[in-house]
Design a binder for these strands. Structure first.
Length: 481
RNA sequence: GGCCCCAUCGUCUAGUGGCCUAGGACGUCGGGUUUUCAUCCCGAAAAUCGAGGGUUCGACUCCCUCUGGGGUCACCA
């Protein structure tokens, strides 16, 4: 039994797509489950869509998500190169072999010719398909055209009526008749292979044992199987994963969803939370757990538990998952480390260990840190109305502040402890028979400038005596104005 | 449209012929804790298991048809 080897084969056409991460995650898990290798191959054969730097964005995204590969275009490996643009010779050789064996043929039709042909076919309500006009070119004619340097592609000669089947690890038995298939272009006129040739040649060369990819590839799998047969190569196992969906159930797309992995990183999602969430799409833990580590995923993972239906990517559940990771999975140290890149420049870093515990349960994303803590280091604008809760008069509000100030002033810096101050202030409030809600709200707004804050006295403790009293006096001034 | 894939609460899912008067999670709603918000705790609503036929003593589970959704039909992957 050979070593399990899986791969993802992204195209560097722009963003690092969440769907790529999804495929990577399951390929990675399957490989590691079986003690195998997970590799990243770059399929950059479409020079029109090639985007400079896109490749690195993909690696960065995968490393961020902690889905590392052991072989790839960035780190090399025993089957280098891992970039298709650097493997052109192999495709040329393979295509030539197919031509020699009669499984492929030269085609000199240009784009206009093919367009016209398709238009006609559609007008006749036929399925658009190459009509094989170049298949019947004589050997001499082909030779002459090639000698003339005429642009050409190499097409696969599909069998007319052959049933191709395979046992999909996720779908089970699947069969497709070759009569449904077109004479697929294998080599483009620019000398680059199409996906179909490239993927088969490379997966074979790189000894890929399990092709785990999106459902969108099901209908072209017969082409690949045929190619393996023509080359006389051993077939890999195929597993076609469900496709991530938009809320309207269509294939997850940029238009209807945030599909860029860096987007989630920048928005303050925890890599492991996103990973954990992705695990739950199309797969479920045998014990119905929601929260589990990557390692646990690997050991619990089996293809049998894969769902065939495309799951909708639900940001609401991701948000819950992220909050869950922030408050329960990450240690305080880990959280503070994750928070670093989300702290505004005026954030007092030395206070981080005191501030974070106060807002931990309130963070949904790491980026929430600023809006949740700004009053610690910024004097927020105060209005008179904000200081006066419902059913409270200006005079009462003033008294609230006056009493709070009196109480707090009794505490020295060294006795500036939340619980003690709270007791004293609350007692003062109760002694006067005031409504606690109103009283504390005025106090809260006076101290922070906000109606929603962490526990008031913990906040006051972190703020310190000087700042707290200064703000309360300022609030007093506003009420007096 | 042809072909292919799929079909359990709004969403993610459990369920592999009887344990299901269908379980969990998110979200929603209500309640509790609380000086705010959040957390936490408790509870509720929420799927006649897409529909109709079979098979079976018995179907969410097996088969067929229909319907619905998705994918794919490029010198893009």
């Amino acid at each position: 039994m050979s070593i399990v080897r899986t791969r993802i084969a992204p195209s560097p056409t722009g963003i690092a797509h969440i769907g790529t991460a999804y495929m990577a995650l399951f390929n990675y898990a399957f490989a590691h489950k079986h003690g195998g290798e997970f590799i990243v191959r770059i399929e950059d054969t479409d020079r029109k869509r090639f985007v400079e730097g896109a490749e690195q964005v993909i690696y960065d995204a995968l490393y961020w998500l902690n889905i590392p590969h052991t072989e790839g275009a960035d780190i090399g490996g025993p089957y280098s190169p891992y970039r298709q643009s650097e493997r052109l010779r192999m495709y040329t050789k393979a295509a030539q072999e197919l031509v020699d064996k009669g499984h492929a043929y030269y085609c000199f039709c240009d784009a206009q010719t093919l367009d016209a042909m398709r238009t006609e076919q559609q007008a006749r309500k036929e399925i658009p398909r190459y009509d094989r006009r170049c298949l019947h070119l004589s050997a001499q004619e082909i030779e002459r055209k090639l000698a003339n340097g005429e642009p050409h592609v190499i097409r696969m000669k599909m069998p007319d009526n052959e049933i191709i089947s395979w046992n999909d690890l996720i779908r089970g038995f699947v069969e497709i008749n070759t009569k449904e298939l077109d004479d697929q272009v294998l080599m483009k006129s620019d000398g680059f292979p199409t996906y179909h040739l490239g993927v088969v040649v490379d997966d074979h060369d790189m000894k890929i044992t399990h092709v785990i990819r999106g459902e969108e590839w099901i209908s072209s799998t017969p082409k690949h199987i045929l190619l393996y047969q023509y080359f006389g190569w051993e077939l890999p196992q195929f597993a076609h994963m469900p496709l991530l969906r938009n809320p309207d159930k269509t294939k997850m797309s940029k238009r209807k969803n945030d599909v860029s992995i860096p987007f989630y990183k920048e928005k303050g999602y925890i890599a492991d939370a996103l990973r954990n969430y992705l695990c739950l799409l199309g797969w479920s833990h045998p014990q119905e757990k929601d929260i589990f580590s990557l390692d646990e995923f690997i050991s619990a993972f089996t293809m049998e538990r894969m769902q065939k239906t495309g799951p909708v990517f639900d940001i609401a559940k991701l948000n819950w998952m992220n909050g869950k990771y922030i408050r329960e999975v990450l240690t305080m140290d880990e959280l503070m480390r994750e928070l670093q890149s989300f702290l505004p420049s005026d954030f007092p870093k030395e206070l981080l260990p005191q501030i974070v515990p106060l807002v931990r349960d309130r963070l949904v994303t790491l980026a929430d840190i600023e809006s949740l803590t700004d009053f610690f280091y910024r004097n927020l604008p105060l209005t008179k109305e904000a200081l006066i809760p419902k059913k409270t008069t200006v005079e009462e509000a003033k008294q609230f502040l006056q009493v709070a100030i009196e109480q707090l002033e009794k505490f020295d810096e060294k006795d500036w402890v939340a619980t003690d101050m709270e007791t004293a202030v609350r007692n003062a409030c109760d002694a006067r028979g005031w409504n606690r809600g109103a009283f504390f709200m005025t106090l809260r707004v006076g101290v922070t400038g906000k109606t929603v804050t962490p526990p008031l006295f913990d906040t006051i403790q972190v703020l310190g005596k000087e700042k707290t009293l200064k703000r309360l006096h300022h609030a007093m001034g506003i009420l007096a104005a």
